[in-house]
């Protein structure tokens, strides 16, 4: 048991170091290099030039832009993060976190549903393809997966928009709910789902092929192993071999992949949300980038990274409990 605790502690320290490094790196990329190398001062973009000198100074002071970027602003940024303060949007002046929470439900609805469906569909198809390896089903899955992998996400979205939105007119072309939103809660939910159809199917179509291929190649790589031959030699049915032996052994990589897709649920899908004008985090991030609203960009990056690390940590712990071998690494 002690080895488990040591393993978990080591992993925690590792992930914390990565988090700190990621913070430093993103700060250098987004703040230090633009300011010192390219000479971009973010306040240049949002301060009204007709304001007096004093007003400008006051506003700069309010966002902490009057201090040197490095190290003062960085230190303040990191301290604020640990206090749970992601900063304020330069344009609206509201806390990043409250603006984020405003958009989060929409994004979680879209990306959460999409991710869950992708995983279910991808996993099923991957397992089926592996069990029928060499057959027509397998070949279809592989070629479909390769083809879907090649499809640019935005092109799928644009095709759907053109076909179902503009040409056939079956689904709304933009927005999260109708304007004005329906008063009745049931009608509101139906309206939301109606708007959800196109972006959701875009995300699923783009995502599940690659996922199925990945699962298939993971499973196939296990099939030649000695323990599988043993299991088959014992006369176990293929189904048992697949679910009890193979899947258990690829649990680690699959869980890791899942852990890496999870943060995307919060940070959103920039392109799909932009195409369908979805009122979510991804589009907000894009708009903020376009306006040099760096507190938002940094905030969303931070949340993405910290969620990645937390979910990886959870996977590590699960694996450490399930599989004692990983503790020795």
């Amino acid at each position: 048991m002690a080895s488990l605790w040591r393993y978990i502690a080591k992993r925690c320290v590792d992930r914390l170091l990565v988090l700190l490094m990621a913070l430093i790196l993103s700060f250098i990329l987004l703040r230090v290099i633009p300011y010192y190398v390219l000479g971009i001062d973010p306040s240049f973009f949002f301060l009204n030039p007709h304001m007096t000198e004093e007003q400008q100074k006051l506003i700069r002071k309010r966002f902490g832009l009057d201090e040197p970027v490095f190290p003062n602003q960085f230190v303040r940024y990191v301290f604020n993060l640990f206090k749970g303060d992601l900063g304020y949007s330069l344009y609206t002046g509201r806390p990043v976190i409250s603006e984020l929470l405003e958009r989060l439900p929409n994004t979680v609805l879209l990306l959460g549903t999409a991710t869950v469906l992708q995983i279910i569909v991808g996993l099923t198809i991957g397992i089926v393809a592996t069990m029928k390896r060499g057959s027509k089903v397998d070949a279809t899955v592989v070629s479909l997966g390769l083809f879907l992998n090649a499809f640019p996400a935005f092109f799928v979205g644009l095709l759907f928009l053109l076909l179902f939105g503009y040409y056939l007119g079956w689904f709304p072309i933009a927005g999260t709910v109708s304007r004005p939103p329906p008063k009745d809660p049931l009608a509101y939910i139906l309206d939301l789902l109606y708007h959800l159809v196109l972006p959701l199917s875009t995300l699923i179509i783009v995502g599940f092929g690659g996922f199925a291929l990945l699962i298939r190649s993971l499973l196939v790589s296990q099939l030649g192993q000695d323990y599988i031959i043993t299991a088959r030699a014992k006369g176990l049915p293929e189904r048992v071999v697949m679910f009890k032996h193979v899947l258990k052994n690829v649990l680690g990589p699959i869980l890791t992949i899942l852990a890496l897709t999870f943060p995307g649920i919060v940070s959103g899908a920039v392109i799909t949300e932009t195409i369908f004008s979805w009122y979510g985090v991804g589009r907000w991030l894009f708009d903020a980038s376009m306006q040099f609203d760096f507190p938002i960009v940094q905030g969303v990056l931070f949340i993405y990274i910290i969620l990645t690390l937390i979910s990886l940590l959870i996977v590590d712990i699960i694996l450490g409990v399930v599989d004692p071998r990983v503790r020795l690494e």
Binding site: V18, M21, A22, L25, S26, L29, L30, I33, P34, L38, I40, L260, P263, G264, S267, V270, I271, G282, L285, F286, S289, M290, F292, F294, V297, V300, L301, Y304, I305, T308, L309, L312
Partner: peptide, 20 residues
Amino acid sequence: DTLYFMPILPLLIALSVFYG
């Protein structure tokens, strides 16, 4: 690992805007 855990597209968008 640090780079691996960063979201590529949002970062690229921000950097493209900031760097030209």
